[in-house]
């Protein structure tokens, strides 16, 4: 990435922040809804470890069969891989993250759960090539995880 592109991004970012700021000022959105919390460094990390460190400050995972990860064995189209994560038997799950190990940036998404929100997330992710999908649940300051290998026949990242 050269300097000029960075400058573009910065400009765009500040314009966007301005627009959201105005909306917040007009009472259209609450401060929580403003993008401040988006963990840029975690999404630009190029390894699972680095993404977890950026997100949680630790990449120390405890394998757990209490996390259920539903994903296809073979994904014909890597651009659309349905993934369902649910946790049973771990109390106080604060967040769920879904990572695809061999994507250029492994972190696909991270979900912060409020009290009363069940540890259940279903979505669709893109996968560049065959790799493990890793679900990470944070509870009581610890990270629990489970993984599943998904074979991808057509990659979903890039052309």
């Amino acid at each position: 990435m050269n300097i000029d592109i960075k400058r573009r991004t910065l400009l765009k970012g500040s314009v966007a922040a301005g627009v959201i700021g105005m909306a917040a000022g007009a009472g259209l959105v609450t401060p929580r809804m403003v993008l401040a919390a988006w963990p840029k460094s975690a999404f630009s990390a190029t390894s699972v470890d680095a993404a977890l460190k950026a997100l949680f400050g630790s990449s120390d995972l405890t394998g757990s069969d209490k996390i259920k990860l539903k994903a296809p064995d073979i994904a014909e189209n890597g651009a659309v891989v349905p993934v369902t994560v649910s946790v049973e038997g771990i109390d106080g799950v604060e967040s769920i993250s879904i990572l695809a190990e061999k994507n250029a940036n492994p972190l696909t998404s991270n979900y912060e759960l409020a009290d009363g929100t069940l540890p259940y997330i279903a979505t669709r992710i893109k996968m560049g090539k065959t790799s493990s999908v890793i679900a990470v649940a944070k509870a009581g300051g610890r990270l629990y995880s489970t993984g599943k290998e998904v074979k991808v026949t057509i990659g979903g990242c890039g052309g």
């Binding site: 999404f43 972190l107 998404s109 991270n110 979900y111 912060e112 409020a114 929100t117 979505t123 669709r124």
Partner: peptide
């Protein structure tokens, strides 16, 4: 009006995103 879920997404969420979640109360 109370936040139940905050999702942070990267570009690796599929086009025309689908999301499902559950909450009590």
């Amino acid at each position: 009006g109370k936040t139940v879920l905050t999702a942070n997404w990267g570009p690796a969420i599929s086009k025309n995103p689908y999301l499902s979640f559950k909450f009590k109360g």
